[in-house]
Structure formats: structure tokens, C-alpha cells
Simulated assay, not measured.
Amino acid sequence: MTYVVTENCIQCKYTDCAEVCPVECFHEGPNFLAIDPVECIDCAACVPECPADAIFAEDDVPEDQRDFTALNAELSKHWPVILRKKAAPADADEWNGKPGKRPLLRRS
């Protein structure tokens, strides 16, 4: 099992999770983070660190967001690894919890 970053990360992109990860499984895109399922060691250290509550164990991903499992695997192959916490976008708190952010996901 791996962990999966889901929709609420879009536009929030808090990076607290990357800093506590003991392996290099987080990858940073323009407005979203993705977890490489091959690198993830299923430690769950990232889950409580996510201010957006956007990280789930693969088996617990909400039904309407199951496609994020494949999306994380795909995007993590193309985006660079992130190891340290960075400042969140200035408007991250405004986006936290807003539904319907999928169309805003930027791949590059």
C-alpha cells in the first residue's frame, strides 16, 4: 500500500509533508504535490503533517478521488523530488477545503 495526495492539495501545496518523509517520495509540481508509489514506504509520517488533510492511505482514498492514485504515480515520474518545507502559496489558506479544484491542476 502507498499513500496518495488528493484534490485538496491543489492550489494549497503545503509542503510540511515532504519535510517529514524519511524517503524521497514527494514530487513538486506547479500547484500540487504527488507521491511516488514505488518510493513510498507506507510509514504514514506525512498524513498528520498535511494542513489540508489531502493525504490518504491508498485503501482509504475517498471513492470520488480514486483516480488520484494513478495521477500521483504518473506525475511523480515527471516532477522533481522535494525534500524540504517551502512557504505555501500566499492564498493557500483561501483554497484549503474548496471543492472542485481538479480543473486547476497544472501539470507543468
Rank of each mutant, 00 (worst) to 15 (best):
P22M: 10
N8S: 12
Q65K: 08
L104M: 10
D16C: 09
R84A: 14
H27R: 11
L75D: 10
W95Q: 06
P103Q: 11
Y14M: 13
S76T: 03
R106V: 01
A52N: 10
K86D: 14
D16P: 00
C21R: 03
F32H: 12
K101S: 07
C21V: 01
V5F: 06
A92D: 06
A88G: 05
C46D: 07
T15N: 14
C25T: 07
Q11T: 04
E28R: 15
R84C: 04
P62C: 14
P37L: 02
L75T: 02
I10W: 05
L105P: 12
K86C: 10
W95A: 07
A88N: 05
D16A: 14
Q65T: 06
P30W: 09
L75N: 07
R66L: 13
W95T: 03
I41W: 07
T15L: 14
L71H: 04
S108D: 15
L71N: 04
P37H: 05
K77S: 13
E39R: 00
C40V: 02
E28I: 15
C9K: 10
L75G: 07
V5D: 02
A54N: 09
C50E: 08
C40N: 01
A18G: 05
C12I: 08
E19D: 12
D16K: 09
D93G: 12
K13P: 00
Y3N: 14
L104V: 00
N96G: 13
C40G: 00
L83T: 15
Y3W: 03
R84Y: 07
A54R: 05
E49V: 02
L83A: 14
I41A: 00
A70C: 06
A88F: 03
M1S: 11
D42S: 15
P99Y: 12
D16F: 09
A92M: 06
D60C: 11
P99H: 13
M1V: 06
L105G: 14
A88C: 08
W95E: 09
I82W: 03
R102Y: 11
P51N: 15
A52G: 09
S76L: 03
A52F: 06
N31R: 11
T15Q: 14
E94A: 15
E63G: 01
H78S: 09
F56T: 09
E94V: 10
L83P: 00
P99M: 13
Q11G: 06
E74M: 12
P48E: 08
Y3K: 07
A34M: 03
D91W: 00
D64V: 00
W79A: 07
V38A: 04
P22E: 09
T2M: 10
P80C: 11
G97N: 12
E28C: 13
R66G: 10
D36G: 00
T2Y: 04
A70W: 02
E7V: 09
D64W: 02
Y14T: 15
T15W: 07
L33V: 01
E7T: 14
P80A: 10
Y14P: 01
E94Q: 14
F56R: 05
C50S: 13
E94Y: 14
N8V: 01
A88I: 00
A34Q: 03
T69E: 12
P89D: 12
N8Q: 13
E24C: 08
C9E: 10
V4T: 03
Y14E: 15
V61F: 06
V20F: 03
P51W: 13
A44G: 13
A57N: 08
D59G: 15
K86G: 07
